[in-house]
Design a protein around this nucleic acid. Structure first.
Lengths: 162, 162
DNA sequence: CGCCATTCAATTGCACACAACTTAATTGTG
DNA sequence: CACAATTAAGTTGTGTGCAATTGAATGGCG
């Protein structure tokens, strides 16, 4: 009666398409605006973290962004080639690589200050709406991450627990 | 005064990271569940459309999903290699390629019926919450798409015209 | 001290996304 | 009909994202 499988499949088409599309639309708007700075969207995310922390090992950077070295290593190489960051093996722990801003990378922050305003203008959302949506998305991410851990390959989650 | 540039940059870090992370978290949960069906997340989106329409030219498929042939061509080739769809040049218009489900592709829908329920379980969201979030995201996408068109390369649109 | 499990970064392989370009077919216009 | 403009797929090149593997370094333990 209430929401049979067919309807769920249709609804699923809508929600997962919506999130996918929203993510790519966002990406597209950032792409246009960030082109002026010579950054891609993920590169901008990395820079945002570095502007807050100035220097971080790759591991920490990955925790902030939920990205692993497979994604970060080539990305950081490009940022280094662009002269925005330096990477150097930590003296304390030779396994770790410290990422730090160059002067050029630090200076880029000044030009990036106008980005959020332009994005906000594109969305038409105000600060409160942005915050509300962010809270909703974080909720979702937390739930999804927990579920991904609980159900690695699709075992029936019947029991749950812990 | 209220919300200076620095705060906007910090807020931007949060919202764009949140959307990016939510999208990837969603992708990750789907990945786990879709592995049973041998589909990736974008392939699942294509199949959802085909299960509704049965046969479509690549162009229409792209409009439904906001994807271009650069993405769809190789993806459809993989679906064809997997035996789920056939692609054949339209007799009416030789430029166009019709994508249609094979019997195997049609049959896969039966196994896919359980996917949305498992996703819903992962999010902990009910149908109404899903619908609300979807509406919000669509709003965002519409605004972003409009903005992307209005501001292709970021130049001030003051003059316009040729 | 020697050895093994763990940790971190990098690399490899695969699959999107998307811009830019190519090729083939169709349409519009004179 | 001829020819330029348009349209549809496909191809190429770049940049993620992620699983799996590799290789170097560290830490724990007998």
């Amino acid at each position: 009666m209430n929401t049979p499988d067919d309807d769920w499949l249709r609804l699923d088409q809508q929600i997962c398409f919506s999130l996918h599309a929203a993510s790519r639309a966002f990406n597209g708007v950032y792409r246009g605006i960030l082109k002026d700075l010579g950054l891609t969207y993920p590169q901008y995310l990395v820079m945002l973290v570095l502007w807050e922390h100035d220097e971080l090992p790759v591991k920490k950077l990955g925790e902030h962004l939920r990205l692993d070295s497979g994604t970060l290593s080539p990305l950081l190489k490009r940022l280094e080639a662009a002269g925005l960051v330096r990477r150097e093996r930590s003296a304390r722990d030779e396994r770790s690589v410290e990422v730090r801003l160059t002067e050029e990378g630090t200076a880029l922050r000044g030009r990036a200050l106008q980005v959020p305003r332009r994005i906000a203008a594109s969305t038409g959302f105000g600060p409160d709406e942005v915050r509300a949506l962010r809270a909703r998305l974080d909720e979702l991410t937390t739930a999804l991450d927990a579920a991904a851990l609980a159900e690695p390959t699709g075992g029936s989650p019947a029991d749950g627990r812990s």
